[in-house]
Design a protein around this nucleic acid. Sequence first.
DNA 1: CTGAAAGCGCTAACAT
DNA 2: ATGTTAGCGCTTTCAG
Lengths: 345, 345
Amino acid sequence: MAAARGRAGSATIEDVARAAGVSRAAVSKVIRDAYGVSPAMRERVTAAIEQLGYRPRVSARGMRGKTFTLGIEIPELSNPFFPLLLAGATAALSGSPYQLVIAPADPAHHEGYRAIQALVDRQVDGVIAVSPLVEPAWLTELSATVPVVMLGRHDRADGYDTVVSDDEAGALLVMRHLLGLGHRDIAHLTGESAEPDPGSGIPQAIRLRAYCTAMREAGLGDRIRIASTPDVTANAHRAAMRLLAGAERPTAIVACHDEPALGVLRAVADAGLTADEVSVAGYDGIDIAAHPGISLTTVRQDGERMGRLAVELLLERIDGRTEPRHEVVRPELVVRSSTRPPHHR
Amino acid sequence: MAAARGRAGSATIEDVARAAGVSRAAVSKVIRDAYGVSPAMRERVTAAIEQLGYRPRVSARGMRGKTFTLGIEIPELSNPFFPLLLAGATAALSGSPYQLVIAPADPAHHEGYRAIQALVDRQVDGVIAVSPLVEPAWLTELSATVPVVMLGRHDRADGYDTVVSDDEAGALLVMRHLLGLGHRDIAHLTGESAEPDPGSGIPQAIRLRAYCTAMREAGLGDRIRIASTPDVTANAHRAAMRLLAGAERPTAIVACHDEPALGVLRAVADAGLTADEVSVAGYDGIDIAAHPGISLTTVRQDGERMGRLAVELLLERIDGRTEPRHEVVRPELVVRSSTRPPHHR
DNA sequence: CTGAAAGCGCTAACAT
DNA sequence: ATGTTAGCGCTTTCAG
């Protein structure tokens, strides 16, 4: 908290130079600690900087070179998984000269593009995109201008790096668990976006496909039951209610994320049922799932690791790497009391 | 998603001017739609911009004037209350030319200063600070340079605006509720930072004081029981366990936030107790509190409104207002099944 | 209504 | 080792 003597933020490199009786270039060199400054000069300049409360303007710096700013675009911060990513990213950056800035993007309005563009307009040195909805082609184009790491999509492109969780493996983990418990009527609750394009790189789509595969391989192809709704998180409760009220009530419901799974749990309770009648599983491994009042079986994704990896890849790119890298992290099944053997009526 | 013909991001205002056969100044005017451009020229310029996929560099623009960027500093995004603020802030900004960027700050390391400074270095047009730990004096100094709105602290200063929830009223709401139910042994769980300086503007400190006041006014001054720990969110469970194991077990525990309250609930369950033996109340009104598996009595703060207000005040300041404004929003008690009349042994 | 030109604060050659 | 200088891309007087 160095005290600023002059009006904070007003001093320029010129002022510092004058105060120290040196040239602007000298000050610049001291700031960036570039080659060719005598200890004596460094001392004088440092003192002047301190005394004037001088801070280099990043915008001005950005005009010639880098801004030492990394941008990350994030949809719906309300999803507790994303803070994990950020924690990892921030941790990976601590000690480095880079600052992370987050641009929130409302996924409902195709805001991903807008937010990423806003970041690029602000001359960030690299972009991490978390939006599952921006098109790979667009990102490829973008990556010609600025290094890009896409988080959580399975499509690969040469222009940018990716960090994903192995969603297929994760989804199979839950399915094997439920099938192992003896469930046969397993329904899957997912977002609308997963449906139309099963080949897309969206995690939900991958998980949906894995669900279908697992069902078919267990000889339960005819019992596949998919409930899909726009904005699953908001509508999970209603969708689950419909599922539970129907003639052939499933004995287990697998949700594409933990948050919708919470809605499903609520629906189960509201329908006067318990985990003995209907098992529920989620996906993500958010903290609250471990709470005894919830106790949700889920697949934990190591969000912190993913965030850290994303930053590392980005820094490598900024450092000059050109061959694309694609990191896959392994999810892990966490069994809790929301999933039990099916009750035989 | 206007297709960029040239290499994205490479076109400058100069290129556009050349392509449209006009001067740079003309293009600039069109961009900012300033006074004095003929429809014909506007058309030509717009076409050129479109065709070249031109995007103005915000840094360059920032060198002369504004960056149309608002910065918000937020500690621990994992706290589900903060996304609400962001939602409100983002909503208030939609349609405006401003872009919101978030700088995450680890509260553990005095990062508030660093994050806010990073924002200012990047020439944001205004700053919203959520850190309860940055010193008012520092903010006052800062506000000489850039408009500042402080969110969630009760100290007032002339340099900057504030938006706070009425924490005293909120805390009294819970206390009155519990006392009304018949509780007499009510303990309060809070963070260490609330303790030392009861007169500070930190919300937890205000709530702590209100708790004490309410107890005393009910003639229960000698039963005041404060459990305070560093990093309450992480240590709530342990602290609650100690409280529950002690000789004089409280019949109710009030936590300074919902997240610690979740830990308390877990402790109650782990100790083999129920809401009939120990009532628990939180503060914030996070979504999960409404879940039947949790059902936590709490005080809801309208985070969305607070975020919106903060942005509005900031925009007013940017627009030239100089008299300080201090907005107070009223919290609201939400009673759920975690609080019940005390069990008489 | 349009254009020429002077910077904004900084970095990076290029001298010295 | 230090200083000079030419821009980076944009906005903004100020003339035409």
